[in-house]
């Protein structure tokens, strides 16, 4: 049963990775509900952050263009919450591969108070670099986005060697990208936990989404097995509808007493 759930999740992540990269033949005007760059040569849809930046860039304001990615994410998040991060996002899949027990042990040495503070960075990212600086200064999150570097810059440089040369943001973007790589190897779900602006936005809907994780407190023996396996470091039995929960179901697998389950509805 437990292996089944994680196998299904892997299958789901692979399917969404494939769908996200069907754009070699045709492009759509859709918007990804997760962070994935439309600069990828095979992208099929638009990056929600890129679309938001287009809508508000340098004191321009296009209401419908701004609402489009917000409503796309909100509609889906109202139903499945941050399961988008756990089951659909290709960067989530990447982090699933990079997070090894041996390396992520190091990150557990970081004091809880610092880690808790760092988790707010993604909200600062969302407000500052996705909304404020593009609108007032013209400096965008996409100028230094490590996901754009990973799925746009690198593939284009490999596919078309010599056709492109670095622009003025390249050195900064490279530094951010190196930091991103270190982060995802050292921290389990480091990008999702600390920096992903889309994850920050989706997380707000975890409070009201239809799908959620439920802990049956009458069955819970406080063995903390669920806390140990949680990639987001959530205190599962004591926090209901956590904004950090990506509904990966690892806690469900880890609980030998069947106290944790997915629940749809109230």
């Amino acid at each position: 049963m437990s292996k089944d759930l994680q196998r299904k999740r892997l299958l789901s992540q692979l399917i969404f990775l494939l769908i996200s990269n069907l754009g070699a033949r045709f492009k759509t005007g859709l918007c990804y509900p997760f962070l994935y760059c439309h600069a990828c040569p095979y992208s099929i849809a638009g990056c929600p952050i890129g679309i938001i930046e287009h809508a508000i860039y340098k004191k321009h304001f296009n209401l419908f263009l701004l609402l489009y990615p917000i409503l796309m994410i909100a509609s889906l998040s109202m139903i499945v919450g941050r399961a988008i991060c756990g089951w659909m996002c290709p960067i989530g899949l990447l982090q699933r591969i990079t997070s090894t027990e041996r390396l992520t042990k190091l990150s557990r040495k970081i004091p809880h108070s610092i880690e808790r503070f760092l988790r707010y960075a993604k909200y600062i990212n969302l407000i500052l670099f996705v909304f404020l600086t593009p609108h007032f200064l013209g400096f965008m999150f996409t100028d230094i986005c490590p996901i754009g570097f990973l799925v746009g810059t690198i593939p284009l440089s490999i596919l078309y060697p010599g056709r492109f040369s670095p622009n003025e943001f390249f050195p900064f973007a490279l530094m951010v990208f190196i930091a991103f790589i270190i982060l995802i190897f050292l921290f389990n779900r480091g990008w999702c936990k600390f920096f992903c602006p889309i994850g920050a936005f989706i997380g707000l809907f975890n409070k009201v989404s239809l799908l959620r994780i439920e802990v049956d407190k009458s069955k819970c023996v406080h063995c903390n097995a669920c806390i140990k396996v949680c990639p987001m470091g959530i205190d599962v039995p004591n926090v209901e509808r956590s904004q950090e929960c990506i509904l990966c179901g690892r806690c469900i697998d880890a609980c030998q007493y069947g106290a944790i389950s997915f629940k749809v509805g109230v």
Binding site: G23, G50, T142, D143, S165, N167
Partner: peptide
Amino acid sequence: VTLATDVYDRVKTGIVSVICLSCIKMKPA
């Protein structure tokens, strides 16, 4: 927003189909 405005077309032709060189932090040689 998708059906009654031009947003879908705008995203398709102006964002997804055009590589924004700022986004990839590069420019053609």
